[in-house]
Design a protein around this nucleic acid. Structure first.
Lengths: 253, 253
DNA sequence: CAAGTATATGAATCCCGCT
DNA sequence: GAGCGGGATTCATATACTT
């Protein structure tokens, strides 16, 4: 399985890709959420919004957390429209979102041409409790298809709920990093040997999961910092897979 | 703890209630989902949509499953507006929805004057797997408040994910009946001794849960059939609670 | 090495004081 | 009076560390 990553603006890089070459688009855009006022949402950086006061980690910030909800919908629609173009007929799209952006994300998915098929819940057991309230302990993954789904092309049966904590400590490279064990399940929506695209790659968990599950990967990331981290993680994963298959080959002889 | 049920149109009955008397509105409106086209959704009855072809159950149909999405949002907004009026400041609203109606339900909640606060996932473990797809095994509960929340008034810490199967067999009295164990957790968002309102009562699971958790209940149901069932379930629950407390009183002497 | 203990933190939210 | 920003709050969980 192969991988390739690009650094740059997601929309620009997407327009350079060939049409109908991707089996599944799986992406986790900046949510532009958090905060009670528009000012709080749009003027603070991701780190200021999403990292607890007093926490000691030293993770790099990420850009793109400056949009109000209308603008977020507009931006995501453009991306999903281009993503639709580069996807094969019958291909899939998965978009991470929190509860606030669930409605606008469903709009963007459908405005981009996709048929909205459902929502997946990702449960985070380690979330913050709050007095007199329900926890915000789920994020959501909206999914859709480019036209009809041929169940026989990729006859998997996937759950609609996953429970896993964010990577912590030294394993954590990004503020909003997704657990690889969840991503490994999600990438199975692309057929084995197929290609997965993530145009908001971050530290590359989607790509690592794709390689581990025998899918190829295309990644786009705006910041050079995270693109470098993703390249390293992907290269390391590819090396480990090559070693394993060599050993298996040797053992089989 | 007391209960009272009304039979009739939800909006009409709501307008007859006194303002600022309810602590939490918890309701499960007919989703008007199911089917990929408007025609499929609005031309079949609830029974035809939500029970498997040829299944032998004998549950009564329910009305209200004839609206397209725009009309559903309009209808729900009117109800949530009236519900807002009858709720105390700082009171809560919980609306069940499926993934399709999640966006329009969030609109109706906010259009009714409520501050949208989050989404709760209800996971149904025994949902149907589908080839080449993710399961649709979660429903959602959108929740909001009438103005600011005073955590000290009801200092509970509630989870944002529940897992439970729909009642089955003889215990099932309504096509879309909710499990009482889930409802018992949800009603805790009203303070002990407070009042819970359900204007789409169905067979009364919300009310049963409210009584079991020491909250009073107001229920509105359109069909006389289900209102009767709810009355019987509520009366039985109240009797059981009275028996238990008598025994406890006798044992204490 | 297993079991028990200590510590850090979360895609958050709100209060309160200041401008 | 509205807007802004700093800092406290809360506990289940993962991890590190100790016994």
């Amino acid at each position: 399985m192969t991988f390739r990553t690009y650094q740059g603006d997601a929309l620009t890089r997407l327009t350079e890709l060939d049409p109908a070459t991707v089996d599944a688009v799986i992406t986790d855009p900046p949510y532009n959420s958090g905060g009670t006022t528009a000012k709080e949402r749009t003027s603070r950086t991701a780190r200021e919004k999403y990292t607890t006061g007093g926490s000691k980690n030293d993770l790099a910030d990420f850009p793109g957390e400056n949009k109000d909800q209308r603008s977020y919908g507009f931006w995501l629609t453009q991306l999903m429209t281009e993503a639709y173009r580069v996807t094969k007929p019958g291909g899939m799209a998965l978009i991470f979102t929190d509860w606030r952006q669930f409605p606008v994300s469903s709009d963007a998915l459908q405005a981009g041409g996709w048929i909205w098929r459902g929502a997946i819940s990702w449960h985070k057991p380690q979330s913050r409790p709050q007095k007199g309230r329900f926890r915000q302990d789920c994020e959501y993954i909206l999914w859709g298809s480019k036209g009809a789904i041929d169940g026989d092309r990729n006859p998997v049966y996937l759950p609609g709920l996953y429970s896993a904590s964010q990577p912590a400590g030294a394993k954590r490279q990004h503020i909003t990093q997704k657990p690889v064990e969840v991503m490994r399940e999600l990438v199975k929506i692309a057929p084995p040997g197929g290609t997965v695209l993530d145009f908001c790659m971050g530290s590359g968990s989607t790509g690592v999961a794709a390689l581990l599950e025998g899918r190829s990967f295309l990644g786009i990331e705006m910041t050079a910092h995270y693109r470098d981290i993703a390249e390293q993680r992907l290269a390391k994963t590819a090396r480990q897979l090559a070693d394993t298959s060599e050993h298996q080959g040797a053992a089989a002889q």
